[in-house]
C-alpha cells in the first residue's frame, strides 16, 4: 500500500497514471502528451512498474505501458474502509449527543424549578 502511495505521490507520475487510463501508450507518446522528456518518462515508468501500477507489453515494434488495476483498487478500498469506520462512529456519536442534550435540558429545567421554588 505504501508503495502505491509513494508512486502516486509525484504529480507527474499521477498524471502518467491518469493518462494511461485511456489505454497503453509508448514512452514517446506519454512524453509528448504530458510535455515531459524521454528520460523523465522512463524514470517515472520505472517507479510505477516497481509499484506494480504499470505493466509493459511489446506490440509490433513498440513497448507499450499500460495500467494494472489491482493496486489502485486496493488504495480505493483502504480509503473507503476508513470512510465507513468514521461514518459509523460519528453516527453513533450523534445518537449519544442527542441523548446527552435531552439530559442536559432536563437538568436545566430541574435547576430552574428549584430556583423558582
Amino acid at each position: 500500500m505504501i508503495e502505491t502511495f509513494t508512486a502516486l505521490a509525484d504529480p507527474n507520475r499521477f498524471r502518467i497514471v491518469e493518462y494511461l487510463l485511456g489505454g497503453a501508450r509508448s514512452v514517446g507518446a506519454i512524453g509528448e502528451a504530458l510535455n515531459l522528456n524521454q528520460p523523465q518518462v522512463s524514470k517515472h515508468l520505472r517507479v510505477l512498474k516497481e509499484a506494480r501500477l504499470v505493466d509493459v507489453e511489446a506490440r509490433a515494434q513498440q513497448r507499450l505501458y499500460g495500467l494494472r488495476p489491482e493496486p489502485l483498487r486496493e488504495l480505493n478500498a483502504w480509503l473507503e474502509r476508513y470512510r465507513d469506520i468514521w461514518d459509523q462512529r460519528l453516527e453513533q456519536l450523534d445518537s449519544l449527543i442527542e441523548e446527552l442534550k435531552t439530559q442536559d435540558l432536563e437538568a436545566a429545567q430541574r435547576h430552574a424549578r428549584k430556583k423558582k421554588g
Binding site: 505504501i2 502505491t4 502511495f5 509513494t6 502516486l8 505521490a9 504529480p11 499521477f14
Partner: peptide, 14 residues
C-alpha cells in the same frame, strides 16, 4: 511516504 502521497495536488479529487 504517506505525506508525499497526500502532497500530490488534488490527490483525493483526482
Amino acid at each position: 511516504e504517506v505525506r508525499e502521497a497526500v502532497l500530490a495536488s488534488g490527490m483525493e479529487h483526482g
